[in-house]
């Protein structure tokens, strides 16, 4: 009897980039549904624009760089980038904003560095921060959840607003928009209104964060936990980001509850959940050693809090992720684990 001995490796994992990216997208679906339930068609339209632009730019760059087009175009990584970017763009933002952000993310932040696996900065956050700095006004017009607004945006109305800048008669964008909970607390604190007063005077606050926002947070949390269970991401970064954000917020909250929002509010507001589970965990731009990941996550949590509370921007996740991205190689350098059998150098 002849026994064939194939070359090693004899056992290999079945994870591919495409499978990973599909799982990430799958984990985002509940949050996308929740988002659309509370804030309308905007996210889906933005996501479609972003995905189409990102795929187009990816195709163009792969052609220019003479790399295999089909192989990279179908791995799903640009789709994840585009969907994450769409989450950060206000629902009724004009279409060119999304196009610009997605193009910057794919062309500059990803392909100039060599494409998938080489980008030192998270492409979605690079695109978002460019938009936030270049078009601060367009990027800060958010809608109130439908429960609180008298106007229910239908699909054609949303399309009109996004592509033509035309709003239902009698409404302007400024009249439709409402400050996000983070934004509101910040502006009210600057005119000496305490947090408790702000919360009782405005209807947009829910149990922890804002109405609607906290539900999106819940679904993102569940999606993230599923990703950890499926071993697409490791627990280190989300735990470190949320843990440090919670701890720092708790310290200041206990010190002065009138001027510092509760830790639960911080964790459930803005992009904290999305950032912790889906953005900071980007395997390329994050730190890679276990110890490094914890340092990286803690850095994001603390920087987010600092920028939110004392900085000039309402949410700090985007900047915090970019700042820790640029620190990640240094963190990796100094947290290299000891090689088994060798002494620590």
């Amino acid at each position: 009897m002849k026994l064939n001995t194939p070359a090693s490796p004899h056992v290999h994992g079945d994870t591919t980039v495409r499978k990973m990216m599909l799982r990430v997208l799958l984990a985002l679906i509940p949050a996308i549904i929740a988002y659309s339930w509370f804030f309308g068609w905007g996210l889906l339209i933005n996501a479609t624009i972003a995905v189409v632009t990102a795929l187009g730019c990816e195709y163009l760059m792969l052609k220019l760089r003479e790399r295999p087009v089909n192989f990279f175009l179908t791995d799903g990584s640009v789709v994840v980038t585009a969907v994450l970017l769409a989450f950060c763009i206000p629902p009724l933002a004009p279409w060119w904003l999304t196009v610009l952000g997605a193009a910057f993310a794919v062309i500059v932040a990803k392909h100039l560095y060599g494409g998938l696996g080489y980008n030192p900065f998270n492409p979605a956050m690079a695109g978002y921060v460019v938009l936030l700095i270049s078009f601060p006004r367009d990027m800060s017009i958010w809608l109130p959840p439908f429960i609180l607004s008298e106007l229910d945006f239908s699909l054609p109305a949303t399309l009109n607003a996004v592509f033509l800048g035309v709003f239902p008669t009698g409404y302007t964008l400024d009249a439709l928009s409402a400050a996000t909970p983070l934004d509101l607390i910040k502006t009210q604190l600057s005119i000496d209104v305490t947090i408790a007063e702000t919360k009782s005077a405005h209807a947009i606050f829910g149990d922890f964060g804002g109405i609607g926002w906290e539900w999106i947070g819940n679904w993102i949390f569940l999606g993230g936990v599923w990703l950890i269970y499926k071993k697409v991401i490791s627990w280190h970064i989300p735990a470190a980001v949320l843990g440090s954000l919670f701890t720092v917020a708790l310290i200041f909250y206990l010190k002065d509850a009138d001027h510092y929002a509760s830790p639960m509010f911080h964790v459930f507001s803005g992009a904290a959940m999305l950032g912790a589970f889906f953005i900071a965990t980007d395997p390329v731009s994050a730190a890679t050693t276990p110890m490094g990941r914890i340092v990286y996550g803690i850095g994001i949590g603390i920087l987010t809090y600092v920028i939110r509370v004392w900085g000039g921007y309402p949410d700090g996740i985007g900047f915090a992720v970019l700042l820790m991205n640029l620190a990640a190689p240094t963190i990796d350098y100094y947290t290299q684990p000891r090689v088994y059998g060798h002494k620590r150098s």
Binding site: A126, V129, I133, L303, G311, Y313, G318, F319, L323, L326
Partner: peptide
């Protein structure tokens, strides 16, 4: 760009 997050 990332350092602009510290502005203000």
């Amino acid at each position: 760009l990332a350092f602009m997050g510290f502005s203000g």
